[in-house]
Design a protein around this nucleic acid. Structure first.
Length: 303
DNA sequence: CCCCAGGCGGCAG
DNA sequence: CTGCCGCATGGG
């Protein structure tokens, strides 16, 4: 391998690449990355060209390699920024652990999930589409539908006989037809929502930079929920995963409610006051708490 | 046939 | 603003 195609990113304190791998590989068939031998393979579009990258741990660094495609020095900076943001490597999460340690029901997470970072979805359009796909259906089916969409409309790069995909652009999905999406088992409504959101992004009516420029959480959330198909849950999830908003709590999320129930924090789904009290104790770290609670769902015997 | 799944929009009150 | 209802679609 050409060494000038390799980039090293220092690993911060309280960061576990194994936890990143675990999250990206947790029993679901995600079409936007491949994991093999402790290495992540991911296609990325840089300056209009799709390149294939690999990410692995190498001593005190994450090592990013470009396996196919050429990257300029500027693109290397982009790759570092991308990975740093994807795995939320910039943040010091010790304050979050201090809060966890104060709660007897959650303190074990500091040890069991040590170094887990909030894995992001940089592309806001992708994050919103993923939410719409996942609304009110089980996750394994959602991943199937996403794969059909990505393999039909997304860009791809081939390497060693395997295809690696990037999420479709809004411009492409804005041209998709209802029938095409319904054939992939999108419901009528979801097909409508996806095309509508794609048109909004393609026209510039909706963009990550415009949302980021808004002054506060409430207005950012409102700018999202103004669009058909984006409700409170989707807006919060998108803000949490794409804009890394600490306040982005996907209220009502079935996984979140199940996790709260497993930890005996609530007895049933209507106990909003108890949920509010919990999150009040985690000001500034709400989205991290959600992410760690989701992480806990994979632990079998909590009872 | 039933209920559920990482909801949403619409419409009464 | 809140609460409820219909809606789609596959899976157990």
């Amino acid at each position: 391998m050409n060494t000038d195609q390799q980039i090293l990113v220092p690993i911060p304190a309280l960061f576990s690449f194994q936890e990143c791998l675990w999250f990206l590989n947790r029993n679901y068939d995600d079409c936007l990355h491949v994991i093999s031998d402790n290495t992540i393979y991911k296609a990325l579009e840089i300056d209009g060209e799709i390149v294939l990258t690999s990410i692995r741990e190498s001593g005190p660094f994450l090592e990013i390699a470009v396996l196919k495609g050429n990257v300029s020095p500027a693109s290397k900076n982009y790759l570092v920024a991308y990975v740093t943001e994807w795995f939320d490597m910039q943040r010091s999460i010790q304050p979050f652990y201090d809060l966890l340690a104060l709660d007897g029901r959650l303190a074990y997470m500091v040890h069991d999930f040590k170094g887990l970072r909030l894995i992001g979805i940089d592309n806001l359009f992708e994050a919103i589409c993923w939410c719409i796909i996942g609304q009110q259906i089980n996750l394994s089916f959602a991943y199937k539908v996403k794969r059909r969409l990505v393999e039909r409309f997304g860009g791809k790069i081939e390497h060693d006989g395997q295809h690696y995909f990037v999420f479709p652009t809004a411009e492409v999905l804005a041209q998709a037809t209802m029938d095409e999406l319904k054939a992939m088992q999108f419901s009528e409504k979801k097909a409508e929502y996806i095309i509508g959101i794609a048109k909004a992004f393609a026209s510039g009516a909706l963009s990550k930079s415009a949302i980021e420029a808004l002054p506060d959480f409430t207005s950012r959330k409102r700018a999202l929920t103004d669009h058909k198909g984006i409700g409170a849950w989707t807006a919060n999830y998108a803000l949490m995963k794409s804009l890394k908003e600490p306040e982005g709590i996907p209220h009502g999320d079935i996984g979140l409610l199940n996790a709260l129930s497993h930890h005996n924090i609530i007895q049933d789904r209507s106990e909003t006051l108890k949920i509010e009290a919990l999150f009040n104790a985690f000001k500034g770290w709400e989205s991290y708490l959600v992410f760690y609670l989701w992480r806990s769902l994979a632990v079998k015997d909590l009872s």
